[in-house]
């Protein structure tokens, strides 16, 4: 007893490590780990050869390629323009700023099907943006480009909301100091602002990317859904479910999980490398 008492851990202001850890594990298990493990179990049902069949099916491959490719492009677009929007919201005050700030969250709140229908109505050949593009010989709705448009819409808030607080913490004096030390505007941006914003930008990018990969509701309306052209992987999963083929559906889901995991892991490694390089916290 006395030994234990003397070897007391350093006191914390708010106790409860045990309880919070227990809660975290239970919570994660209930809502994340157990549901995900059923995906793995259902997939194991079909055996290795069945899984290999799914993996090598050209249609599945194309759907995966399309889902991850469009999500990647959309996340890149969002990383660039999300940073710009966050910058504008943080650095400038102008009438209507709060309104724009609130509008950024709309894609979070809107049911994705509504977004899909609205975007399709706009970008179809007879919609008012679509008709202009059509005149230029561009087709957006019912092509993979349409999928990117939908995913840009869905992913924007992730980037803006990740970057915004970091930019808010970035003091103006740092930029001014850089300027007085003779840095050009480009240098100030690339050497001072960007390194500070980069970790949060990567986080936002990863969130937007992950969200885009799994997006179904909005994409389904604008994609056209043609096999091997504009058929996304989540639709293929729905098709397998319609066939009452639960194992086939979870096999594709497991593949998507694995690829997503690798992608997120890569981004995390990039984050770690970036932290080391900049010698940050």
């Amino acid at each position: 007893m006395s030994v234990l008492a003397s070897a007391r851990r350093p006191a914390r202001v708010i106790p409860g490590f045990g309880i919070t850890l227990g809660f975290t594990l239970a919570y994660l298990s209930l809502f994340v780990l157990i549901p995900l493990s059923t995906v793995a179990f259902k997939t194991i049902d079909m055996g290795w050869s069945g899984f290999w069949g799914v993996l090598t099916d050209p249609r599945t491959q194309h759907a995966l390629y399309l889902s991850f490719g469009t999500a990647l492009i959309a996340a890149l677009v969002n990383a660039v323009f999300g940073l710009l929007i966050a910058w504008m919201l943080v650095r400038y005050t102008f009438p209507g700023r709060r309104l724009i700030d609130a509008a950024v969250d709309l894609p979070f709140a809107l049911p994705t099907a509504v977004a899909g229908i609205a975007l399709t109505a706009l970008y179809a050949d007879n919609g008012w943006i679509g008709s202009i593009l059509h005149g230029l010989g561009l087709k957006v709705a019912y092509t993979p480009v349409g999928i990117v448009v939908a995913l840009v819409f869905i992913g924007l808030p992730f980037v803006v909301r990740s970057v915004q607080p970091v930019l808010e913490d970035l003091n103006l004096d740092v930029e001014e100091a850089a300027a007085t030390l003779g840095a050009t505007r480009w240098h100030t941006f690339s050497r001072v602002i960007l390194p500070a914003a980069l970790p949060s930008l990567l986080t936002g990018f990863a969130l937007a990317f992950a969200r885009g990969v799994g997006e179904y509701g909005s994409v389904i309306f604008i994609a056209g859904n043609l096999p091997k052209v504009s058929e996304i992987a989540p639709l293929l999963i729905v098709i397998r479910l319609e066939e009452f083929n639960y194992a086939g559906a979870t096999a594709i889901a497991a593949l998507m999980l694995a690829i997503s995991f690798l992608g997120l892991l890569a981004i995390n490694l990039l984050q770690a490398w970036n932290r080391r390089r900049t010698g940050g916290e």
Binding site: I117, T120, A121, A124, D125, N126, G127, A141, Y142, I220, F221, G224, N225, L226, P227, L235, V238
Partner: peptide, 16 residues
């Protein structure tokens, strides 16, 4: 376009 349901196809034909 391969819509996922009958109503969706009708919308594509009629509205789009």
């Amino acid at each position: 376009v391969l819509d996922t349901g009958a109503r969706g196809a009708t919308t594509t034909f009629v509205q789009r």
